[in-house]
Design a protein around this nucleic acid. Sequence first.
DNA 1: CCTGTTTCATATCGAACGCTATGAAACAGC
DNA 2: GCTGTTTCATAGCGTTCGATATGAAACAGG
Lengths: 203, 203
Amino acid sequence: MKHPPTPRRKTGRPLSFDRDAALEKAMLAFWEHGYETTSISDLTAAMGVTAPSIYTAFGDKKRLFLEAMRRYAGDPADLAAAFASASSARQAVAGMLENAARLYTGDATPRGCLLASATATGSKNAADVRDAVAQERRAIRAIIVRRIERDVAAGRLPPETAPPVLADLALAVTQGMSVLARDGADREALLAVARASMTAWPE
Amino acid sequence: MKHPPTPRRKTGRPLSFDRDAALEKAMLAFWEHGYETTSISDLTAAMGVTAPSIYTAFGDKKRLFLEAMRRYAGDPADLAAAFASASSARQAVAGMLENAARLYTGDATPRGCLLASATATGSKNAADVRDAVAQERRAIRAIIVRRIERDVAAGRLPPETAPPVLADLALAVTQGMSVLARDGADREALLAVARASMTAWPE
DNA sequence: CCTGTTTCATATCGAACGCTATGAAACAGC
DNA sequence: GCTGTTTCATAGCGTTCGATATGAAACAGG
């Protein structure tokens, strides 16, 4: 995972807060309350940083959110690597669903999924942010589709398998689990849903 | 479906707009842009009604949304009736998923699901509205669970069937399809996901 | 030390937010 | 036609929004 180059500091007064820690706090705030419905005032409280410092360190609210998302929502390259090294597409997707079930019900983070809920809807001003999040989801979908196609080509899955359908099913279950988690479903319920959805796979 | 009694008019200047039509326009605006991220200004434009008229006719933004949701998102009693008259739990859920797939990709309404996306996240000020929408989802879940339990009791489904798991799977797929639809998935893709998820059912 | 650079805390900015006060206009009943 | 009631359009209420101007404070280099 490659981070963008730390803004080159020439000289001057040193930063009085931990930039990475503040970014993580911002991410958690966006995760819990959504992009547009988290105000700058909410962010200053969560990050422990005043508004002008946020703007000099991260640009504006939009760039702060995008940086937080790209930093903590998981690099698609990491997912691609995990999928590539998995023993099968089935195992890879089952693992992804199980990880999601655990993540969405963990105590260290808000319930549900940042990518599924933070920009589920929004005003026209935030259309570009929604598009960026949707792009992230599409990247994940493409990775799943390719991994399934690989197993079909290798004869590990029946030739009549439709990779996009299985991928969309996995995505739908993932994002649906996010809503269930927000409604209070516990970890076992989500894990059961994840396992049940895998029985829809061939063989 | 029983509507709340129309506010009794004694006398006075008649309403200059169609209250039901305005309510539907408001619902569509909330559906597309979400509850908190649809402003009163957006609503006056969509409904063709000035702000004071909205407030005298519907109370405030919160009550306008709740009335729109309860009026158009489907009365749980209607769903319960459809489920009761269905030939089987499986058929009832398959029908629900197919209806959702068609609804989320229809041209007459925004993409996705009002109940899944309008209050996916939000500020603390709107916590009560989110709870009301979550309550609606829980009511739907209870109906599905009960219908599956009925089939298990009647021996139409294997005794080891876990009704809550199948119900949660159906809910997750439904709400996941909402995200897929918003990301641009077409009707056939959603119908395929709905059908694929049904192969997870026993027998 | 002094200069240059960057961040700091304070105090806002204009715009948009949800909402409402006000008085004229449009009806029903008498 | 007058009275009572309700809705109308206009204008603006106080608050919060995202974002900044300002000048003092904290460093590195010379």
